[in-house]
């Protein structure tokens, strides 16, 4: 058990703080919702009602989509683009998917290589791009979830003000959808760009996301070891 915790500390600790944050968000959102209902002289809703409501789900989904878009773009961009000096980048001159030998694919697979890395055809292609495919799928599905939840929440507000309901096609070009979308995207792109650039000159001793403290500013990830 102790060995399991030591070997998997990164994923387990993020799982724990994710769950705690989600519970915190749901409780704070529930209080906020009931305060607003009270201001309008309406009856408070139960916790169960709130966490299954579109107004809560759209807030969760809009953050999920932007996080998965961030990783999707970062994984894709780091195949093709280089940032000299950054530990997040491959070495200059190594842009692109790499050779089959470098990637240990097909006949270059070794003992312990995943079976699909040498499976050939569609399976090998799918496995070679599986991280990007899954991140992209989660981004698209959570963006779709945001659009559904956002439409339902906006239509509920519109109904209270005697306004007509929007269809899904009308909602996905509405300001509310793009305001929710872009306010999350801008912060993700800022954070990724900052991480790539700041890590050229700044260090964190012991972190896999940093170059060694004594590495040259010009050294890119693989050159700095």
């Amino acid at each position: 058990m102790r060995r399991f915790l030591q070997d998997n500390g990164l994923s387990l600790s993020f799982l724990a703080i994710f769950l705690l944050s989600l519970i915190g968000q749901s409780v704070a959102g529930w209080f906020d919702e009931n305060e607003q209902l009270a201001e309008h002289g309406q009856v408070a809703v139960s916790y169960g009602h709130f966490v299954t409501s579109s107004s809560f789900l759209v807030d969760v989904a809009e953050n999920w989509q932007s996080e998965f878009l961030q990783f999707f773009l970062f994984i894709f961009a780091t195949v093709w683009l280089i940032q000299r000096g950054s530990p997040e980048s491959k070495k200059p001159g190594h842009a692109g998917p790499g050779t089959r030998k470098e990637q240990r694919m097909g006949r270059f697979a070794r003992a312990g290589s995943p079976r699909w890395s040498a499976a050939g055809g569609v399976r090998e292609w799918a496995y070679a791009n599986s991280l990007l495919i899954v991140m992209g799928a989660v981004f698209l599905l959570s963006w779709f979830a945001q659009s559904l939840g956002g439409m339902a929440a906006l239509n509920e507000q519109n109904a209270q003000h005697g306004q007509a309901a929007l269809t899904w096609l009308e909602y996905i070009v509405a300001p509310d959808f793009w305001n929710r979308t872009l306010q999350n995207w801008q912060s993700e792109f800022l954070a990724v760009g900052a991480m790539v650039t700041l890590s050229i000159y700044l260090r964190q001793q012991g972190s896999s996301q940093s170059k060694p403290v004594g590495a040259s500013h010009a050294a890119t990830a693989e050159e700095s070891t």
Binding site: F4, D7, N8, S11, L12, L15, T52, S53, S54, L57, V60, A61, W64, V138, L141, S142, F144, A145, L148, G149, M151, A152
Partner: peptide, 29 residues
């Protein structure tokens, strides 16, 4: 095996969450 279970726990969490976030608004919540 423990690491494999951890991987699938994350996949179930993510795709389970997505299923909930897509189904509930469609069900009129």
């Amino acid at each position: 095996r423990a690491r494999f279970i951890l991987f699938w726990a994350w996949m179930v969490l993510i795709f389970g969450g997505l299923a909930v976030m897509i189904t509930l608004p469609l069900a009129g919540r």
